[in-house]
Design a protein around this nucleic acid. Structure first.
Lengths: 253, 253
DNA sequence: CGCAATATTGACCACTCTCAATGAGGGTGG
DNA sequence: CCACCCTCATTGAGAGTGGTCAATATTGCG
């Protein structure tokens, strides 16, 4: 679908998010070249494709170059849990290291290109390059910290706050990658958003309508435009300043 | 309080959980000795002590030797979120690597001994010992996978299932460390359990009473005895076999 | 021995889920 | 090209789980 990606992954990769990440953390030229050498070339993926699936042997980490991917796990009772959405520049597969097999499915949400990093080679390389090792530790650590923020979100926030947090979160992540923070496409369905946030589809739908009525955003199917980022941040509770109400279960001890 | 720990941390450490972990993963004798050499000796901690606190500079990972520790984060709105409880053999501090400072408070719940692992030295050492590096990756990865299970728990399970999952979870963790899986002390308060599971204190209290009425367990303040582990696992939804009801929000797509 | 913190139990109510009906696209085949 | 179908999204009405508030044990600590 996007020939540019298919033709010269080298070029794309150079300019791409994976290296963006590594550069920003102080990998120097030659080290970077080594890293680049182990990146496996992959062909573009399409909506519905599985990048990997649960129980298949763990071989590689992936970084999204363009597009988006959701990770999903099947619960013992047969229900599904969406674990996350992965945008350009973000890693997938960290949870598989410990099991030697993937612990979730990674499903492509739209036409998507990824970098594949064979983990064996990445490990070897990080034996040679301390900075790389440290960077990997940081990335894993970031993942842990992010997930624990998700825990707060699910435990402490109501539906409105969750959706506002979700939208502002996307906004920030897009902005960091150079996309518009106020104008983007939701590659995931309402139902996937709801599943991820622990809310029913209907709740997502109702809230988007309400946010639109309140002039916070304009939503049209997959396209969304955030009109009042400040207020959304406020609703999300990202705001350190005064809070508007005594949260439920306010304190622990 | 426990003089054995204070007197010869060497001996305790050898037999202790930290090395239990590393041994189980194939670190050989000499490598193990190197690891042991960087373990910093620390004095026992008491209820209410902070092992570290938010924003203080990140220096070390910790492993609980005996006792227990909770990790808590302050939300922007002033409410607290309990992030986890850490039992003997379990690590604390992974989330701090990326920030170079701790992102939560680690508060001691009862008299507790820990191993301190200065992260700089640990990093250096894992440059020399590939197995150690790999083991660290695994530990971080495990943390990520565990947290994503927590996400499923909060999103898909009702109060009863959450508490059952919490209790069976503790049971398994105790058993793995050689303690009784059916008979243990809850070092955390009802309120801390509720905070962690996203439930009100009252709900925890009510459920414990109900579980007791149903003959699943006997609870007396901090002490708990699980009478019917199988059924608790079943209630927790850990059971792969037939499930008892159509879970809410059954599917994603 | 009394105060403060923690736990238990009850009554009420709100948030959000469930169920149900309708609408809107997007793809396929006639 | 349009009719048809299927999935996804929206909107409404009713119900249930679990939170909030409040009162009362119970415990532990100074």
């Amino acid at each position: 679908m996007n020939p540019v990606i298919a033709f010269n992954s080298k070029v794309v990769c150079k300019s791409c998010t994976l290296l963006g990440i590594c550069l920003s953390t102080g990998l120097s030229g030659p080290d970077l070249a080594k890293l680049e050498r182990i990146v496996k070339r992959t062909r573009p993926l399409h909506r519905g494709d599985l990048l990997f699936s649960t129980h298949s042997p763990f071989t590689s980490l992936f970084v999204v170059k363009t597009g988006s991917i959701k990770t999903v796990r099947q619960n013992p009772d047969g229900s599904e849990q969406v674990l996350g959405f992965h945008l350009p520049g973000e890693f997938i597969g960290f949870d598989a290291i410990q099991e030697d097999s993937y612990t979730c499915d990674a499903e492509v949400l739209e036409t998507t290109a990824v970098c594949e990093l064979p983990f064996d080679q990445l490990s070897e390389l990080s034996q040679l390059i301390p900075d790389l090792q440290h960077q990997l530790f940081r990335l894993l650590s970031k993942e842990i910290a992010d997930e624990s923020k998700m825990l707060s979100l699910l435990n402490r926030k109501n539906a409105e706050e969750r959706l506002a947090a979700f939208l502002t979160g996307l906004s920030c992540r897009f902005q960091r990658r150079g996309f518009s923070p106020t104008d983007f496409y939701l590659s995931m369905s309402r139902s996937e958003i709801g599943n991820y946030l622990g809310l029913a589809v209907e709740t997502i739908s109702r809230l988007l309508s309400r946010f639109q009525e309140d002039g916070l955003l304009i939503v049209n199917r997959k396209h969304i435009r955030l009109l009042n980022l400040e207020r959304l941040h406020y609703l999300a509770g990202n705001d350190t300043r005064v809070q508007r109400k005594g949260q439920q279960q306010a304190a622990g001890k």
